[in-house]
């Protein structure tokens, strides 16, 4: 269902790079990538996953997973753990810990504390562990400053370095508006996936473009990088991938 898109992004392997960042341009939706990656991680036996729901609540990912061919509820509480910020806020209102600063912790500090706790409880029992954060730009809406988001991402990158089999995957929407933050987060990892809209406009057969940049080797004075461009179309139950130029208007 989503194997082709993961293959194109190089995220179909059991061991993923330490830090992967997804930049999502304005007016495009790259949430399908989170659902695809989540499904792929859940299918690996004894691989732990922590999903941090900032843009969509957990139920959304369950529904999306069902369409893509996996049932995330089976793994919930076992290999899948969820920090559902949106649901917490909806259920607890202003008393929610994400909306009030307890112990003088900021929102991002509170979040990283919770991630550390989850990691301490689950990492040792799993062959590998993946932390998925569905949208960093929601943190801005919840009152976090650019600096806080940057520090939060640096803490995540530090966690990925400390733990051998840990992968952190972040997504930032409106990356063209939050350009500085986007670049600063992307530099923390070796893989950056940009979800871009079509420059020529809207097309029925194609939703947008994925630009996958991967640092292959860091030399002393220059980096060896690979860049790959593919077009994608999100259908009801799958995601299709095309090479640029493969699809055209036939007259």
């Amino acid at each position: 269902m989503a194997a082709s898109v993961l293959l194109a992004c190089g995220l179909n392997e059991q061991k993923l790079p330490g830090f992967v960042h997804i930049s999502e341009e304005s007016n495009v939706d790259g949430s399908f990538l989170i659902s695809c990656i989540l499904g792929q991680r859940l299918r690996i036996s004894n691989a732990g996953t922590l999903l941090i729901c900032l843009q969509h609540h957990y139920q959304h990912y369950f529904n999306a997973g069902m369409r893509l061919g996996y049932n995330s509820n089976i793994f919930l509480g076992k290999t899948l753990n969820v920090i559902d910020v949106l649901s917490d806020m909806a259920q607890q209102g202003l008393d929610c810990k994400w909306l009030r600063s307890s112990d003088e912790l900021t929102l991002t500090e509170q979040l990283i504390e919770d991630i550390r706790t989850q990691l301490a409880n689950n990492y040792a029992n799993r062959t590998s562990y993946t932390i998925l954060i569905d949208n960093l730009s929601i943190l801005f809406n919840l009152g976090a400053s650019k600096l806080h988001v940057q520090q939060f991402c640096q803490s995540l990158a530090a966690l990925a370095k400390e733990h051998e089999n840990l992968t952190v995957i972040t997504k930032l929407s409106n990356s063209d508006i939050h350009q500085l933050t986007d670049d600063n987060v992307a530099k923390l990892g070796n893989v950056r996936i940009q979800v871009l809209r079509l420059k020529s406009g809207v097309f029925r057969e194609v939703d947008g473009k994925l630009l996958i940049e991967r640092v292959l080797d860091e030399g002393s004075y220059a980096c060896e990088q690979s860049r790959k461009e593919v077009l994608y179309k999100v259908n009801d139950r799958n995601v299709k991938i095309f090479n640029p130029g493969e699809i055209g208007v036939k007259v």
């Binding site: 530099k187 860091e218 002393s220």
Partner: peptide, 13 residues
């Protein structure tokens, strides 16, 4: 040129 990721290596070299 956005080579910040290799800054320390660059100077060390």
């Amino acid at each position: 040129l956005n080579r910040e990721r290799i800054a320390a290596k660059f100077i060390d070299s």
